[in-house]
Amino acid sequence: MTTITLSLPSARQPRQVLSWFGVAPFFLFALLFLILPTLNIVVGAFRNPQGQVTLENLGKLLSPSILSAFWISIELSLLTAVLGCLFGFLIAAAITLGGLPRPLRNAILTFSGVASNFAGVPLAFAFIATLGRLGFVTMLLRHWFGINLYGSGFNVVSFLGLALTYLYFQIPLMVLIITPALEGLRREWREAAESLGASGAQYWRMVALPVLWPSLLGTLALLFANAFGAVATAIALTGSSLSIAPIVLFAQIRGDVLNDPHLGYAIAFAMIVLTAIANCIYILLRMRAERWLK
């Protein structure tokens, strides 16, 4: 006689436990290397070296030098975010609605993927090689057009130079994010508007832009945060000659300039707050945009 034993999947209880073992490492990792370090900074921003709760550190942020560093950072991030959005939008509109050949669209999207990740040190080198004192474009302008770029006060190691450099990853990021949104504008909307007597401008004002608005604003916030947190590009381009918030923090951590770790906490905390606000705006608006474009 043969007995057939049917092996059922293991009972519910042990399986559940096993599944927890599957996700536990992730949470432990996130706790140790993401949550706790960040919390440490946040808590530290409100403590003095003796461990007492205080607002003194945040008060130190109001000193003119640090305030101006944050101000320059905000200006830089805002400027490159706005310009990035504007130019990125124009390029995305050109490749989606402009009737350009399809392969060009794909090529531009691929290039945008590369350029938006081509940030940091090498990007700074590329701009020094292009717009530096002996850079390609500088020489080109001098020899061919007789324009002395540096004579007119330009310097790649400056606010303007940094802004130009940041745009190199800001614009492609905008192109990558806004292209799907533009492709989500349905042809029928335009045709429906036309059949109801609307002009092209009326269609854009009353339908297309309102539909894109959350995406546009959201991307603006994302680009702001993107520029605000960028350190490597700025350091490689300007050394520490341009005092922006992340560079101040970098110097602070290195202990080169000031030696007050709790001021460092406060600067870091302020950076988190600013990028968090920008990102929350992005996420909120993104959710609204997806509701419409589903």
């Binding site: 290397f33 993401l34 949550i35 706790l36 960040t38 440490n40 951590i253 460092g264 870091a268």
Partner: peptide, 20 residues
């Protein structure tokens, strides 16, 4: 959690490491 690294600037995270 997976969005946080985009929100918190890397320099802040590494600062936290150094402190902890």
């Amino acid at each position: 959690i997976t969005l946080l690294p985009l929100v918190i600037p890397p320099i802040v995270i590494v600062f936290g490491y150094i402190r902890i």
